[in-house]
Each structure stands twice: as structure tokens, then as C-alpha cells.
């Protein structure tokens, strides 16, 4: 399946891109996206525990099953206000 991956703040800096379509095996989960990113840059392994994931603009847990065309965002610790 293809997903639209969006990265923000420190996640964008670590990966070196803001947005990209990526191919994942069918039945992949949101957590698999972090594993995919850890292969691009090992620093994601260290950050993984405090990055949250959102699918189609809603927070999800790492076990959330992805669908083709989902928009998956990696949400580093937020710091608005």
C-alpha cells in the first residue's frame, strides 16, 4: 500500500523531508512507520518512544492498522502555547 507520510518539527529535521509518499507492506500498522523511519535515520529509534502518530488527522496507537492512501503524521512532543 502507499501512504502519505507527513513529518513535523524535529521529525522533519531528522528525516530531512516534510512529506513523501511511501510504500509499505499490506497490513502495516502506524508503529511500522516509525520502524521505517528508524531505517532511514537511526536517531528515530531514540525518539520513537516520545513521538505520537496520527492517521487522517486523528491520534492513533502504534497498533492502528493502516489503509492505502492514509495520511500518516509523526507528531513529536508538542510545544504550543
Amino acid at each position: 500500500m502507499t501512504i502519505r507520510l507527513r513529518l513535523f518539527a524535529v521529525a522533519k529535521d531528522l528525516a530531512g523531508f516534510h512529506e513523501k509518499h511511501i510504500e509499505l507492506p499490506d497490513a502495516s500498522t502506524a508503529g511500522d512507520v516509525l520502524a521505517h523511519l528508524a531505517n532511514i535515520d537511526s536517531r528515530f529509534s531514540r525518539w520513537g518512544s516520545c513521538m505520537r502518530l496520527a492517521v487522517n488527522q486523528e491520534y492513533v496507537g502504534p497498533d492502528h492498522k493502516l489503509c492505502h492512501d492514509d495520511e500518516v503524521a509523526v507528531i513529536p512532543p508538542v510545544s504550543g502555547g
Partner: peptide, 10 residues
């Protein structure tokens, strides 16, 4: 807002 809203400060 400070816990949930996806906004980041640099």
C-alpha cells in the same frame, strides 16, 4: 492545548 494540539515552538 499544550498537551494535544500539534503546534511546535522553535
Amino acid at each position: 492545548l499544550k498537551q494535544e494540539v500539534p503546534i511546535w515552538k522553535r
